[in-house]
């Protein structure tokens, strides 16, 4: 029976997996496009400062720069871990 199962088993196609992974990667890359060069550094340093007070994960911080007509808004989102005062 084992042999029969082995023979009937359909090998999973790999191209759809590649496509799905690429769609995620590319969406992320595009969201980074057009950001000022200092943004990754700013993100790292902000994370360091926050960590002096609260232990947060690397992906707990999310910064966005939005430009409207004549002003830019820097939006900073930090997810604090459960149980931290706030």
């Amino acid at each position: 029976m084992k042999l029969l199962e082995f023979l009937k088993r359909e090998r999973k196609k790999s191209a759809p997996v590649a496509k799905e992974r690429l769609q995620i990667i590319v969406a992320h890359q595009r969201s980074q496009r057009g950001r000022p060069d200092y943004m990754p550094m700013l993100e790292r340093e902000l994370l360091e400062v926050i960590r002096r007070y609260v232990q947060v994960d690397d992906d707990a911080i999310n910064i966005n720069l939005d430009s409207e007509d004549n002003c830019s808004v820097l939006e900073l989102n930090v997810t604090l871990p459960k149980g931290s005062p706030g």
């Binding site: 790999s14 191209a15 590649a18 496509k19 769609q23």
Partner: peptide
């Protein structure tokens, strides 16, 4: 290899890029 499902097809690549 595209037919056997182990290579990205041209439509996929065009769609992504």
């Amino acid at each position: 290899r595209v037919d056997t499902g182990d290579m990205l097809n041209l439509e996929d690549i065009r769609e992504i890029l």
